[in-house]
Design a protein around this nucleic acid. Structure first.
Length: 258
DNA sequence: ATGGTGGTTGCACCA
């Protein structure tokens, strides 16, 4: 089985790229983030004719997550919606959707960005990760994959120049500690061994020719429970998908399972 | 600085 995750930065504006990605890599399950679409807005006809089912959640204009699968979608669950203090529609943000696909529990995650280290959203980000970790501890003994845009660069080599991130989110000790917590609980980054750095990224800003100069960040990850990780036979980052006109600012990450 | 979205069809807000 082949599983992939991609922050698509609008599913509607990139539906053609999604369909070509599925065909090009023969992907069985695709987790998407930043779909920026309500359930009733999704153009599913092409995907359905290709044999895929879709489960999605998302209500605000900048968020939304989905799972696309041709090996079944069972027991769909939406969780970790948003900052409790927020009013509508932000409180209805869907930042995670989980489904069992081909016997594997897949969670498509869009971890809060945090914005600035002194912003309330940064506290929300850490709290959100704490809540996710507590839930993930209960999924560890099943084949579970926590995939998506983690908005954390766990290592200095995961950003193009750490000296430019001294006051930035994504690289702070508490964020990295939160990420490490999942590893401590038995989840493993199943992609890094197959795509080691430095200079290997999953995200490049649109501006300043960041992609052309390979000034990116590795912030999209597939964390697998032990019974998931032991089935991983390979993985790669589809850097080419980031190239050219009309690309998302993130590249897809692909994992193969036995 | 670039790009997507919804709406105030200009512009604010998000990444």
């Amino acid at each position: 089985m082949r599983l992939a995750t991609w922050n698509v930065n609008s599913l509607r504006s990139r539906i053609d790229r999604v369909e070509k990605l599925l065909e090009r890599h023969e992907i069985d399950v695709l987790a998407l983030q930043e779909t920026k679409a309500r359930v009733d807005q999704l153009p599913l006809m092409g995907l359905e004719s290709m044999g895929y089912e879709v489960a999605s959640a998302g209500f605000s204009q900048w968020n939304g997550v989905a799972i696309i699968s041709r090996v079944g979608i069972e027991d769909v669950e939406v969780g970790f919606e948003g900052m409790p203090e927020w009013g509508e529609p932000q409180a209805a943000e869907a930042r995670a959707i989980g489904a069992t696909c081909g016997g594997v529990r897949v969670w498509s995650l869009y971890v809060p960005n945090g914005r600035k280290v002194d912003d309330p959203h940064f506290v929300y980000k850490l709290d959100w990760l704490t809540r996710l970790r507590a839930a993930a501890q209960g999924w560890r003994d099943q084949p579970t994959a926590l995939v998506g845009d983690w908005n954390i660069a766990p290592q200095d080599d995961d950003v193009f120049d750490i000296s430019q991130f001294r006051t930035s989110t994504h690289v702070t000790p508490p964020e990295r500690a939160a990420f490490q917590g999942f590893l401590d609980d038995g989840y493993a980054d199943v992609v890094r061994p197959h795509a080691p750095g430095p200079g290997v990224y999953t995200y490049w800003d649109y501006y300043r020719q960041r992609f052309e100069r390979n000034r990116g960040m590795r912030i999209d990850f597939v964390l697998g429970s032990p019974s998931f990780a032991e089935r991983v036979t390979g993985a790669f980052i589809d850097t080419e998908e980031r190239a050219g006109q009309g690309a998302s600012d993130h590249a897809p990450v692909v994992v193969d399972l036995s």
